[in-house]
Design a protein around this nucleic acid. Structure first.
Length: 600
RNA sequence: GGCCCCGUAGCUCAGCCGGAUAGAGCAACGGACUUCUAAUCCGUAGGUCGUAGGUUCGAAUCCUACCGGGGUCGCCA
């Protein structure tokens, strides 16, 4: 059963059908890399061309850009890197995009770009969507991103929020990279935990009928099941109470799961997270036992056997050797073979998950990504092995582990215990601080690093708060344009692509242009490495460069974006502002964070 | 004990498919600003990139071992 959720993010899924006209696109780094490669080929060099990189040097006195070409090409060609560098530099300066090139250090070629090159970058970035399409891959894949997949036994808590945001942003980034992305949620509705849920709801049902109940440990004590009990009482009266458990449990279970999933979707909704596919684990067993069929297929390949696992060292005092159905995951790099059936004959979670991943493979995905909590780290090898076995190593599985989130309130840790009602739900956090800070902060850290989340800090309006800092940069761009209109009339913003942007030669303006030029490759790298946090850091850097330039205008009015005495220069700078704003807006949108025009 | 992740400035962290003098923010120190281009700005100082080896012309980055922190370890999901 695959319930199709309302379509969402379709815009992100649509690939740019028509390539924009050539002069509108300017991938500065790619273009220069091409030029350098061509020069190298003209010199008869062919080994190491793919290692040529054009990057920004750490030290800005080294120029705007630098290439390692001379160094990576010299060795295989048995040539002197500095000499080779001189040749490359001499040829590069012939290029109209290049104002200067010189050899430095062990053989770096440092490049100063011409004002015309900067102007092209600015004009390309004016159309944020077209500029972003420069990040599209020429080898698009069908990618499945599975994330959240929380047990439907209660509301989502803060820990889930991180996986939810990371998965969603990753899906966005992959889509912008040109891949066909499906966002998916696996509903664990088949195990013993949902039976425990049903028993808990049944107690609430009896409570609704007037009984005094006590919820034993092992069941779910949260009062979020009270309404479920009441609904059961309304619908069934006392009918369920007199049934045997085998009779009422399936009924109560189904109602409870439906209620929990409705709550989960509402919780995700407040973060604007929508999955396209909700996949039921139970549907792999009922009405048809797809799990069995999958196992049988693997058995045909000699990957299933009855066996006894070795006793693990160091612990497991109560270990008893036991023969069970095992998957030969060691054949694909796992440390130990893994059990597929429990002693009562039912499938392990892993067995169902094998069938589930097989379903994804059958649906034709080239790449599968599972966003998991860090406590599932031990699960990665076996699932990777299973996908390799099922797809005959054709399909790649990447598991992205998200570390824990620690909550703070003004520096003090927020205490959470597992007891009823004493954990912070996703909804609590979003209600208190808003969706934007939650989303941005969850992405402002590598996902495999622990994250501190401070309620006070993320709503603070200061530069210490990265969410505010980036959004404010976007708002500041809007503000600059408003001021320009006031000073120079509404038509000052017309046809900014016609502005004389080659006037943007100030160091701060150039720094902004170089940063803008990096956007397509930052996005591409974030997608390829499955690291959406790179986008967040990049946006912070771009925001910082904008604020810096703005602040320089305080000391030196000649640098202000808006100058009522110099309409032509103002228009050039407005083009830059517009370009920065477009990239900020596109980037924030990829992260699912709003881009306000003013901060209130 | 096995496996996975992490260890970078006082703090919180980027950088990691090898490249130049290792970066940012906070805190510290020294200045500027008294303002709607608002929700600060400029500068200074701060480092055996956990330790020890190895590969390399070149290592925070790759390999090995160890130390420290976290997670996880047959029928929970």
């Amino acid at each position: 059963m695959r319930a199709e959720a309302p379509r969402f993010g379709r815009r992100l899924l649509i690939r740019g059908a028509a390539q924009p006209p050539a002069q509108a696109t300017m991938h500065l780094f790619e273009t220069l890399k091409q030029r350098v490669t061509t020069i190298a080929q003209g010199e008869g060099l062919s080994v190491g061309l793919d290692r040529i990189a054009v990057e920004t040097p750490r030290d800005p006195t080294h120029g705007d850009l630098a290439t390692n070409a001379a160094m990576v090409l010299a060795k295989p060609a048995k040539r002197n890197p500095r000499e080779l560098g001189e040749i490359i530099a001499a040829r590069l300066v012939e290029d109209p995009l290049v104002a200067g090139a010189s050899v430095a250090g062990p053989g770096f070629v440092n490049i100063t770009i011409a004002p015309e090159a900067g102007a092209k970058v600015v004009k390309a970035a004016l159309d944020g969507a077209a500029f972003t399409r420069l990040a599209e891959t020429d080898a698009p894949q069908k990618v499945n991103v599975e994330y959240v997949s929380a047990n439907p036994t209660g509301p989502l808590h803060v820990g889930h929020a991180r996986g939810a945001v990371v998965g969603d942003a990753l899906a966005n980034v992959l889509a912008l990279r040109g891949h066909a992305v499906t966002r998916e949620y696996y509903i664990n509705d088949a195990g013993s935990q949902v039976d425990a849920l049903a028993r808990s709801a049944f107690l609430r049902y009896r409570e609704a009928l007037g009984e005094t109940i006590e919820i034993p440990s092992g069941l779910y004590p949260g009062d979020y099941l009270v309404p479920v009990g009441e609904a059961l009482a309304r619908e069934h009266g006392e009918a369920l109470r007199d049934m045997a458990e085998e009779a009422w449990l399936p009924i109560v279970r189904e109602v409870s799961i439906a209620a929990m999933m409705a709550a989960v979707r509402e919780d995700l909704d407040v973060l604007q997270i929508r999955h396209e596919v909700f996949f039921s684990e139970r549907s792999l067993q009922v009405p048809t036992d797809i799990v069995a069929a999958t196992i049988q297929r693997l058995e045909g390949e000699g990957l299933i056997y009855q066996g006894v696992l070795p006793r693990p060292k160091g612990q497991a005092d109560d270990w008893e050797d036991r023969e069970q159905t095992l998957f030969r995951s060691t054949q694909y790099g796992d440390d130990i073979d893994r059990a597929l059936k429990k002693s009562d004959g039912s499938y392990t979670y892993f067995a169902s998950d094998i069938a589930y991943h097989d379903d994804k493979i059958q649906r034709g995905f080239d790449r599968l990504i599972d966003v998991l909590g860090a406590d599932h780290g031990g699960y990665v090898k076996r699932m990777t092995a299973a996908v390799a076995a099922l797809s005959h190593e054709k399909v790649q599985l990447d598991c992205l582990l998200c570390q824990l989130v620690k909550l703070y309130r003004a520096g003090e840790p927020v205490k959470m215990s597992k007891r009823a009602g004493d954990f912070v739900t996703l909804r609590d956090v979003v209600d208190e601080v808003g969706a934007d800070p939650v989303r941005f902060m969850m992405l402002y850290r590598k996902s495999d690093a622990p994250l501190d989340f401070d309620f006070a800090k993320v709503t603070e309006q200061s530069r210490d708060n990265p969410v505010f800092y980036v959004q404010y940069a976007h708002a500041r761009c809007a503000s600059a344009k408003r001021q320009a209109v006031e000073a120079l009339g509404a038509d000052v913003l017309d046809d900014l692509s016609e502005a004389a942007a080659e006037q943007l030669v100030d160091a701060g303006e150039k720094a902004l242009i170089i940063l803008l030029a990096q956007w397509p490759q930052v996005l591409a790298a974030a997608a390829d490495s499955a690291e959406p946090h790179r986008v967040a850091f990049y946006l912070h850097e771009l925001a910082s460069a904008l604020h810096t330039q703005w602040n320089r205008g305080k000391d030196d009015t000649a640098l202000r974006f808006v100058n009522a005495e110099a309409r032509d220069l103002t228009r050039a700078r407005l083009a830059l502002v517009e370009a920065v704003q477009a990239v900020l807006r596109t980037g924030l949108s990829a992260l699912g964070v709003s881009a306000p025009s003013e901060m209130r």
